[in-house]
């Protein structure tokens, strides 16, 4: 169980940063609390005295300016740190710009937890099973961090794919708070997200795959593809090589099947878990097909040469 001496709820970013940089050693930032509270109980089963004591908890969920989203740059969307996963399901505009996040949200925990769990919390916790990260990595996400220096707010921006260094480890510096996440808008794209687990709800991910896809106007070729995998290694994997291969190719069963074989070796080199290597191929194929199906793009079965079936 988590215990603390003080629980502070700053109302603006500067107060939050001042409290954070001045907090005693061992203090923690808290957003939705959906990772922190369970964490404080883990592995302490037989040991009731094993409560986790933290001097100060700084709850950033009421800091103004950290919820909501906007579009400060063309083609990009910026999500406030405190956007919760339920919003990706319920907000039509978010569904439009981030078509794979609604599927991600559908698979994320359950309704109750989605209303509390924040995007920033999911990123900063950096669990290898963090579902929210792979979809953002696929869209060239960057995270914006703030800190205070002598009472002024300083900011910096880091690509999400480098921000996460390993399980539970990020590039967040002491005194920093993650304030927003920016990524490409996938408006007009189809999106998909799937994960493997041992049941159909409250699933902790073993492997996940996500895809955004934009077909050409005539629906025959891949104009743009974004692909990422989660859970296949210590950090999420952006499948840039597969994306490059697909761009410009005809949309066909054979092309998709070929693309799906590409991540296998890369995954094999990063994980010793046979199971993850086994599923990657079929999963990648499914992610691409799912994204196309979500915008009702048919996948013809002929070979990827562009020639007709009669040539086979």
């Amino acid at each position: 169980m988590l215990t603390c001496d003080d629980y502070v709820v700053p109302e603006n970013l500067l107060d939050a940063l001042m409290a954070w940089s001045g907090a005693p050693e061992g203090s923690r930032l808290l957003a939705g609390a959906t990772d922190t509270l369970p964490w404080a109980r883990q592995g302490r089963a037989g040991d009731v005295a094993g409560d986790v004591h933290v001097p100060t908890i700084i709850d950033v969920s009421r800091v103004t300016g950290l919820d909501g989203y906007d579009f400060p740059n063309a083609g990009r969307i910026r999500l406030g740190a405190n956007v919760v996963f339920q919003q990706f399901l319920e907000d039509p505009e978010l569904r439009e710009h981030l078509p794979h996040m609604s599927s991600c949200a559908m698979w994320f925990a359950d309704d109750q937890i989605r209303r509390q769990a924040t995007v920033a919390g999911n990123i900063v916790n950096a669990s290898p099973a963090a579902d929210g990260v792979a979809p953002l990595v696929a869209l060239n996400a960057t995270v914006e961090l703030a800190r205070q220096e002598n009472g002024t707010i300083e900011r910096r921006s880091v690509p999400l794919i480098s921000f996460i260094e390993g399980p539970g480890r990020t590039q967040m510096a002491p005194g920093e708070i993650l304030t927003s996440i920016s990524c490409d808008s996938a408006k007009g794209y189809g999106g998909s997200f799937e994960k493997v687990g041992h049941r159909r709800s409250l699933v902790i991910s073993v492997v996940c795959a996500t895809c955004c896809v934009k077909p050409s106007t005539d629906g025959m070729t891949f104009e743009d593809v974004r692909l990422a995998l989660g859970g296949v290694g210590p950090t999420p994997m952006r499948l840039d090589d597969v994306e490059t291969f697909l761009r410009g190719q005809p949309i066909s069963a054979a092309v998709i099947a070929e693309a799906a074989t590409m991540p296998v070796d890369r995954v094999a080199s990063r994980t010793r878990r046979t199971y993850r290597r086994e599923v990657v191929c079929g999963f990648t194929e499914r992610a691409i097909r799912g994204a196309l199906a979500s915008i009702n793009v048919e996948i013809p079965d002929h070979l990827g040469t562009g020639q007709g079936a009669a040539d086979v």
Partner: peptide, 15 residues
């Protein structure tokens, strides 16, 4: 009005 899990909600959040 939103259903949440009270075991994951520090009480200050309910203020």
């Amino acid at each position: 009005g939103a259903l949440m899990k009270a075991c994951l909600l520090p009480v200050a959040k309910a203020d």
